[in-house]
Simulated assay, not measured.
Amino acid sequence: MVILFEIGSTPLFLLGADARQDSWLAMSVGAAAGFALLFLFLWIQRLMPELDLAGMLHFGFGRIAGTFFGAVYACYFSYQSMRNLRDFGELTSLTLLQSTPMSITMLVFVLVAIYAIWKGIEIIFRLPEILLPGLLFCYFLLIVLFILMRHVNLTRLTPVAENGLWPILQAALPEILSFPFGQMLVFLLLWPLWEKPGVPVKQTVWAYIGISVFLIFMNALNIAILGPDLAGSSYLPFLQSVRTLCNLRFIERLDILVTIMIYIGLFIKMLIWYYCAVETASGITKIPRKWLIFPVGALIYGASFIERSFTQHVAIGLGPSTRIDTVFQIFIPLILGLAAAVKRQSRSAPD
């Protein structure tokens, strides 16, 4: 689930495009910063292993403030799910079903997500077991084709750090830290579901390292194929990279394969954000989860039409949205962890 969630829609965009040919270095900086953030989340979970995020907020901040922050987080999770749902609609409209209204395609995906969440978390966690092997095989196949067709030109990645480290840091922080690495925040609602006692630290860390290396490689691959100018100006650079394979005589329309691959990551990400929104809302209101699935789904679906165009959607998602993310992914969790540690310490101290 860590691998598939982190893949999500990340390969769809060129993160760190402002760093040009050094965008893969910006991705590396973001992954390293996200690794430190991951340990913050693991530390918080180990402080309160029996609680999910809603319970942690109540424990750390008290009933009133905890309920307030829980409601804010439920809205935040719904917003993130909406962003992935809109990505679904835009990608379908651009590649597969140009004549079908986005409202129809997005409604279908919301209904599938509603069904999955209604059936329970066990069904959701079986999806990666089925989908991930095929997804990784497809990525491997495309990488091999790029290499065999000699579309990879490593000179496009040079000169390295031409303008120093500052542009790389600016491109990485906070944008790449927030998306995708800081989104590991959702596992504060998923780790308590693990069937064994404690927190799955080893599994999570190795999965994070593996997916970080993969995303850095994919970022460098897009630059090596398209060059920094074309990759930075393209809405969907990975799709553009795959279309360079159009001179293959025995395979056509590989962009359809890429679209399906992106669908898998997008669906998992939208589903997890949606599930976390429902669980957080249920935790603070004490309303049964199944009663909230449809209202939250309706909210996510309705909010997906607020942004007027795909250009505006991408500009908000990779701009102001990532800056707001730092509040939810860094500042509030850090304060929560410190508050919980102080409370634990005071409770364990002798009278």
Rank of each mutant, 00 (worst) to 15 (best):
residue 41 F to T: 02
residue 200 P to K: 03
residue 121 I to D: 13
residue 266 L to I: 07
residue 75 C to Y: 08
residue 107 L to A: 15
residue 233 S to H: 13
residue 90 E to R: 05
residue 26 A to D: 08
residue 59 F to T: 06
residue 157 L to P: 09
residue 3 I to S: 05
residue 65 A to Q: 04
residue 335 I to C: 12
residue 22 D to P: 01
residue 254 L to Q: 09
residue 85 L to K: 00
residue 296 V to T: 04
residue 94 L to A: 15
residue 241 S to N: 06
residue 73 Y to L: 03
residue 118 W to E: 09
residue 262 I to S: 02
residue 346 S to A: 13
residue 216 I to T: 06
residue 77 F to P: 01
residue 268 I to N: 01
residue 30 G to Y: 00
residue 278 V to E: 04
residue 209 I to P: 06
residue 321 S to Y: 04
residue 286 K to R: 15
residue 49 P to W: 06
residue 62 G to F: 00
residue 259 T to V: 12
residue 329 Q to L: 09
residue 157 L to Q: 10
residue 232 G to R: 11
residue 289 R to E: 14
residue 321 S to W: 04
residue 250 F to L: 11
residue 250 F to H: 04
residue 15 L to F: 10
residue 118 W to F: 14
residue 252 E to P: 00
residue 133 P to M: 12
residue 85 L to T: 00
residue 58 H to W: 02
residue 198 G to Q: 04
residue 61 F to V: 01
residue 87 D to C: 01
residue 144 V to S: 11
residue 268 I to A: 04
residue 31 A to M: 10
residue 236 L to F: 06
residue 136 L to C: 12
residue 58 H to P: 04
residue 188 L to D: 06
residue 282 S to I: 07
residue 277 A to Y: 10
residue 227 G to T: 09
residue 236 L to V: 13
residue 348 S to D: 14
residue 278 V to I: 15
residue 94 L to F: 14
residue 169 L to R: 06
residue 219 N to H: 06
residue 70 G to S: 02
residue 150 R to K: 15
residue 289 R to G: 12
residue 331 F to A: 11
residue 338 L to R: 09
residue 112 V to C: 14
residue 191 W to D: 06
residue 214 F to M: 14
residue 212 S to G: 09
residue 44 I to K: 03
residue 92 T to R: 05
residue 36 A to Q: 00
residue 46 R to F: 05
residue 122 E to Y: 02
residue 181 F to K: 05
residue 106 M to F: 03
residue 130 I to R: 11
residue 180 P to S: 04
residue 247 N to A: 10
residue 340 A to P: 02
residue 197 P to Y: 14
residue 14 L to Y: 00
residue 71 A to F: 08
residue 8 G to W: 01
residue 337 G to C: 04
residue 290 K to F: 02
residue 87 D to K: 02
residue 156 R to C: 11
residue 174 P to H: 08
residue 270 M to F: 13
residue 268 I to K: 01
residue 345 Q to P: 11
residue 321 S to M: 10
residue 49 P to T: 12
residue 308 R to T: 14
residue 25 L to R: 00
residue 68 F to R: 11
residue 325 D to T: 07
residue 161 A to P: 08
residue 30 G to K: 01
residue 17 A to L: 09
residue 57 L to M: 15
residue 60 G to I: 01
residue 311 T to E: 09
residue 117 I to C: 09
residue 85 L to F: 04
residue 203 Q to R: 14
residue 251 I to M: 15
residue 339 A to C: 15
residue 338 L to H: 08
residue 312 Q to L: 11
residue 298 A to G: 15
residue 7 I to F: 02
residue 51 L to K: 14
residue 307 E to L: 15
residue 161 A to I: 01
residue 143 I to H: 11
residue 32 A to P: 03
residue 53 L to R: 12
residue 186 V to M: 03
residue 350 P to W: 13
residue 329 Q to P: 05
residue 320 P to C: 03
residue 225 I to E: 01
residue 52 D to E: 14
residue 109 F to A: 03
residue 63 R to S: 12
residue 351 D to Y: 08
residue 191 W to E: 00
residue 261 M to P: 05
residue 287 I to G: 12
residue 177 L to F: 09
residue 292 L to I: 14
residue 23 S to L: 08
residue 91 L to W: 07
residue 237 P to Q: 03
residue 54 A to F: 00
residue 18 D to L: 06
residue 149 M to S: 15
residue 201 V to R: 01
residue 274 Y to W: 10
